[in-house]
Amino acid sequence: MSDYNFAYLDEQTKRMIRRAILKALAVPGYQVPFASREMPMPYGWGTGGVQVSAACLVPEDRLKVIDQGADDTTNAVSIRRFFEKTAGVATTGRTSEATLIQTRHRIPEEPLTRDQILVYQVPIPEPLRFLEPRETETRKMHALEEYGLVHVKLYEDIARHGQIATSYAYPVKVEGRYVMDPSPIPKFDNPKLESEAIQLFGAGREQRIHALPPHCKVVSLDFEDHPFEASKADHDCDLCGSGTSYLDEVIVDDAGGRMFVCSDTDYCETRRGAGHRGRLAATGQEDAA
């Protein structure tokens, strides 16, 4: 522990990042540039989220890290260990117990509260990037609120697929002003972007931080005759029976067998702990005992 400054980053860097975070909170949805540091992990593994988390953590925090909703995947485990080692903070798998949650590609099912911070790992913060490659131009478009192009993308979806086929990283308009990419969360999670918690988005390689303060208005873009839908697989969880949580499809054999399970592992476990059972739960290992 004494080998590292608290939470790995030096105090000046944390100060710089906190300034960027405050600015991002003050201008919801606006991408604030920051001097992203080299982190002891490759770009694309959450360097932006880790720096934001590092700048927010205090010794009293209880940290939860999820990757696609799961606490036990490599990326989540590595980052949790990183902060256990460099900050010595307590960690947890329980959404309700965590004070700071770093996430990749999901928002927990359980509603977040005013005492929590959700930190997103963001690969590409610019919602206009694939429509307009010039950074000078996209910045100008944000500045002048020229967002017609985002709808061109949605138009193309409907023209090609009969519906808006964008199912993750679905663009939103924040407080009626900035169009924002909510990172590659499923569009099912978009309604949860309006939250009591503070939401911070860190993009390490792209050196941008953006944020949603609590109770911020977040509208998913759509057409009047093709309204936004927070869709999910049309099943119940095979383990906990939930009909309202976001599901992962798991192939279980080579004969076409499959099961649907909550992508939020903590949510699923909590429900099963409370006695809820899904279609395949009886044969599940955990319930065998």
Partner: peptide, 15 residues
């Protein structure tokens, strides 16, 4: 989409 872009740029929101 090419033709529609200018319409969307001035606020058309009905596909």
């Amino acid at each position: 989409g090419n033709v529609g872009e200018r319409l969307m740029a001035v606020g058309a929101r009905h596909y």
